[in-house]
Write a protein that binds this DNA or RNA. Structure first.
Lengths: 126, 126
DNA sequence: TTCGTTGCAAACATTTTGCAGTTTC
DNA sequence: GAAACTGCAAAATGTTTGCAACGAA
């Protein structure tokens, strides 16, 4: 993690991301924060998302319609993407999936350090 | 699937995709086919990939460094992405993962029809 | 005072699209 | 001949970046 100062806007981006389960895009965050921070710029949102991601504070969980979607919930879980409306929902497992890498035969991999599991379908509202 | 005629170039794109395990990007396909089809255009590759994808002939299996990566192997399997070089490898399961959706608790989903599992790490060559 | 942060706008990279000509059937 | 396909170049899209001003420590 590189050195960093406190930033009111970064804090706001992170807290908004923590408080929602919408798995927002950069633009969604920008539009939501703009009323409170009228001088906020979209570039700042992108820069801070990258920074928070490299921090390990947030994660990119999916790309929906070409837009990166973020999540601040860092406990292991997966996601469901509605192919119709683009909604992203949290998915939890009834039994541990932590051993999922042990169930996979990965030839040619020196080290596996994460995985991303995304389900696709249609959500209840569609 | 919408009506379609035969197309020599579409055929070539599909066959190349079938014959390789590189999980190529549009550009990779374009560069590989250009010598044989000097009048091939990148737009045609993109258009045909979309068409083959909507056909169910190929799948987009990952986005690596902002590039969509495709696969014509349609039997169920997953992928490993090397975070260092961007290589995409096939991943098979030692035990069936077909029941994976049954192990997941998906609140808010009306219908789940597919999933995509991607492992991340470092490959043997890196 | 130093260096991280930001707004702004320009630059970027990948993908899509409109159009006129070509191919398939 | 009708409709699908293509090359080309322009446009669209989401994201990154350079720079000068600003803010934090």
């Amino acid at each position: 993690m590189r050195t960093q100062n406190y930033s009111r806007k970064r804090q706001a981006i992170y807290e908004l991301l923590l408080s929602t389960d919408a798995h927002p895009s950069a633009e969604w965050l920008y539009n939501s924060l703009k009323p409170t921070y009228p001088d906020l710029s979209l570039g700042t949102v992108y820069r801070n998302l990258k920074l928070l991601e490299s921090n390990g504070s947030v994660k990119s969980v999916a790309v929906v319609d070409g837009c990166e979607r973020y999540d601040a919930r860092m406990t292991p879980h997966s996601h469901f993407v509605c192919k119709s409306c683009g909604r992203v929902l949290d998915v939890f497992f009834t039994e541990s999936m932590n051993d999922i890498t042990e169930k996979a035969y990965i030839d040619g991999a020196k080290k596996v350090d994460s995985y991303n599991l995304i389900f696709y379908g249609v959500c209840n509202e569609c």
